[in-house]
Design a binder for these strands. Sequence first.
DNA 1: GTCTATACTGCGATAGAC
DNA 2: GTCTATCGCAGTATAGAC
Lengths: 191, 191
Amino acid sequence: MTTAGTDERRTDTRNLIRAVALELFAEQGYEKTSLREIAERLGVTKAAVYYHYRTKEEILSSLLDEHLAGMDAIVEWAEAQPAGRERRQGVIERYSTLLAGMSDDGPQLIRFMQENQTSIKELAAGAEIRSRFERLSVVLVDPGASAADQLRSRLALIALHFGAFALDMLPGAPDERRDAALEVALELGGR
Amino acid sequence: MTTAGTDERRTDTRNLIRAVALELFAEQGYEKTSLREIAERLGVTKAAVYYHYRTKEEILSSLLDEHLAGMDAIVEWAEAQPAGRERRQGVIERYSTLLAGMSDDGPQLIRFMQENQTSIKELAAGAEIRSRFERLSVVLVDPGASAADQLRSRLALIALHFGAFALDMLPGAPDERRDAALEVALELGGR
DNA sequence: GTCTATACTGCGATAGAC
DNA sequence: GTCTATCGCAGTATAGAC
């Protein structure tokens, strides 16, 4: 649960910062994007940004937090199921649905996570996200699975990510790509 | 072929810089790694590093160049073959062999490329690498292939990368992982 | 509560001494 | 071949205007 919601503020600078930051982070990466660049796009100073978010990392955390909650729900469901094919299929289908239901900037966020793993890795919020992926991966691998099967499971999640953000690389409308990605992911991890 | 080789220099600082830089780039990312950090590990100053490489980007370029030549050979071979299953299999097998035959730091370089795509994207050497991947992907997709098949082809290359660098994530000895990755890649792109 | 002005440290990079 | 000195810009931080 975030501090936003029914929160009534006099300006929407806080949300504008999030939107601009996500766009720039996805385009040019986290480290390469400066607070001055974000501030200039909004016509304010660096310090104004610093008022709403105490650090640059906190901006990114607030973006990642949205996705965290969705992943938590899937991990919790999965860990209450018995291991096996049905659980693997359920995880893949639920994760596909989560990606499909994200906000308009969802694809940008997923692309950012996929392409900036090293930047994210050392951040607190990044560690949270990574632990969810780790648990999703564990739940997608039955005990004693081969190296090939473990690889297939991890690729299944990556396939879903590609379907969510690879607008230019793959043909078809967004939901066609999503269906294709789900098909490939199930074939990798749902057998 | 690089400018090194028979090049006899009074110190091996140049090669030491490459080794330390790759290690730090792979661990903490390109942007987060400072020239001062590299210099301090070697007991010299920042400016001494600047004597050997005119920019930070040039250090990274010199690392990526090794892999570029290997990819060029595969792309050239592929573009001289008729499209079809055999060509796809040949590309996957050759790329697997290329990854297996890289130097000791090969895994670090592949991991770096896989996890720092955004950092690399805007660099000159990064654009070169990306164009090779683009051509490899084209050659792995027969005309009129579905979105699912295009996705499978891209995942095949990613599978090989995982097998090359995912030391902690997957079980088994290095060549077992490589064989498992090749198996999955062929099943994705070689049907 | 929202923002500007200002300053501090460390970054990549350059010029020039030795 | 390596150094010192310096530059402009980065993220961070505080004081205070409104």
